[in-house]
Amino acid sequence: MSNFFKPADFKDFDEAPIPQPLPDGSYEPVLTKEDLKICSRRMWVMDTISYAYATQNAPCATFAAYYALRKIYGGDQDAFNTAILNQLDCVFNATPPVCGLLLGAGLALEDKGHLNGMQAENDLKIGLMGPLSGIGDVFIWVLPLTILGSIAGYMAMEGNPVGILLWLAIWMAVLAWRWQNYVQGYDMGAQLITGLADKISILTDAASILGLTVVGSLIYSAVAIYTPLTFTFGDVALPIQTGVLDAIFPNILSVIATVVVYRLIKKGVKLNWIILGMIVISCVCAAFGILGVAPAA
């Protein structure tokens, strides 16, 4: 068990060599299959447990990559510290059982480029986490839960646990796969950078385009700010949300709030204060009926 979550050949800073760049400025990749499997297992222990609104799942990804990064940067403590803080700060969220594919690909970029590969790694993660989750959520959660869950539920209501056991067996197969999925991700990432070395900044821009498109769509679809206020002129009632705001611009409150929060972060306001402020504003506005929960469509 000792090397289930930690590599057997782990070296501390003072024993590990300081990595030397190759003539072209890149580095000799050091991660082995075993190192990547350890990342997968560490990700499994974390999954999505560190989820916070600000950085989402980035801390889990950091915990998973810890020993891989230690191996990449060897005795170079400053570079390792930069890398670990980058992992913590780079917002990440994807369907946990499949996110190893993307995080493994990112590690491949960092393994080859070290700190120079970091920006490309971040952009790759941010750009592809939405699409990966779109596919992952369907194949890992929605489909199995709908199909296996209804079978298990119906059979259980009739007093038969076979459906439950069937679901359990299929899920164990998924678990066995996820315990090594960084390996496949790493291979994909390594292929991506071969022959692309000169074009990495263009690739970064292209990934940013993809990322911004997805973020733009999420500002509409994943944020819900609703006001139940209604103007009344005599007999005519005009609901502000559907009659005024949505007529100007759908979900305009979400856009305004996003711009405000973005500016606050840029100005250096601490995220925890922003979050606390949001909760206070929500409670106050809810108490006076200014904001509410949208009625189900």
Binding site: Y53, V91, I126, V215, V223, I225, Y262, L271, M278, A294
Partner: peptide, 15 residues
């Protein structure tokens, strides 16, 4: 409903 905004805004500062 509002809190996911902090995540997107944070994300945007990286891009």
């Amino acid at each position: 409903g509002m809190l996911p905004i902090t995540g997107f805004a944070m994300l945007l500062t990286f891009m």
